[in-house]
């Protein structure tokens, strides 16, 4: 008798679902090798759009700005998230524990456009002019929960035995943290940092709202290109971004799936 847990057509449906999930990305990659100037007319294979993309000054500037903002925001957000996670998971009798958890995760509870409007008005009121500073402050805020969640998960999945043993052996809290806790939760910290980095690199809504001369991030620059129309160079740029995301995602997922007991 057939397995009652199997549903006819479910496998075909799921296969088609995966095709739908990947087809758009593959279309962009395929078109990026189109030799023709018109993105929609295929005339032959060519690397020339990658060459022109890599020589595009405006693009390279946008990449530089995105990388700078994402690196600084990730560094601050991960540090702040790590401290908050240590207190919220390990601390005893922490006052306002639930409120603090909500506050740390606040950016996840609101649509990003509301946050973008809020920081835009704030910066205009306090008269902050520096475009990079604005981006770094805003990105740090919405990256914190993305760094926090994997670190908290890692800490929750780990018994406090080792840290207690270290303290029994007269290690100061700082030494116990640096020599015992930190190495054990390192994969969670890396995963959180990478998630924060990708979220920052990918951000459009806030970066576009805060956009000013000299602080155009990569997604905002690409948005401008899209509005001018599809070109093979745009496809080449998109393909390079896809490759970059895949490398980061794979690294982060491998780190996340390594559980403390098996790692």
């Amino acid at each position: 008798m057939a397995d009652v847990k199997r549903y006819p057509g479910a496998r075909v449906f799921t296969a088609l679902f995966f095709v739908w999930l990947y087809a758009p990305i593959l279309v962009v990659i395929a078109y990026s090798f189109n030799e023709n100037r018109l993105a929609s007319v295929w005339t032959g294979f060519s690397w020339r759009w990658y060459e022109s993309a890599l020589q595009n000054r405006a693009l390279l500037d946008a990449v530089k700005i995105s990388l700078t903002v994402a690196s600084v925001a990730t560094l601050i957000a991960t540090t702040v998230a790590l401290m908050a996670a240590l207190v919220l998971v390990r601390g005893r009798d922490v006052r306002l524990r639930r409120v603090s958890e909500t506050v740390v995760n606040l950016p996840l509870l609101l649509p990003e456009i509301v946050l973008a409007v809020a920081v835009l008005i704030l910066f205009s009121q306090i008269g902050l002019q520096n475009g990079m500073a604005k981006l770094i402050i805003a990105h740090t805020a919405f990256c914190i929960p993305f760094a926090f969640l994997p670190i908290r998960a890692r800490l929750q999945g780990m018994e406090p035995d080792f840290e207690e043993a270290a303290q029994d052996l007269y290690a100061t809290p700082w030494v116990a943290f640096r020599r015992v806790t930190l190495p054990l939760i390192a994969p969670g910290v890396f995963a959180g940092a990478m998630l924060a980095f990708v979220i920052s690199m990918d951000d459009f809504i806030t970066s576009n709202m805060l956009n000013s001369g000299g602080s155009t991030t990569l997604p905002v620059y690409i948005f401008g290109l899209i509005k001018q129309g599809t070109t093979p160079e745009l496809n080449a740029i998109s393909t390079l971004i896809v490759l970059g995301s895949l490398v980061l995602a794979t690294t982060a997922l491998i780190l996340t799936f390594r559980t403390p007991s098996r790692g």
Binding site: V28, M201, D202, F204, T230, S238, I241, V242
Partner: peptide, 10 residues
């Protein structure tokens, strides 16, 4: 994980 703007562009 692939950039949102690239996925919409596709």
């Amino acid at each position: 994980w692939v950039s949102m703007i690239v996925r919409v562009y596709a």
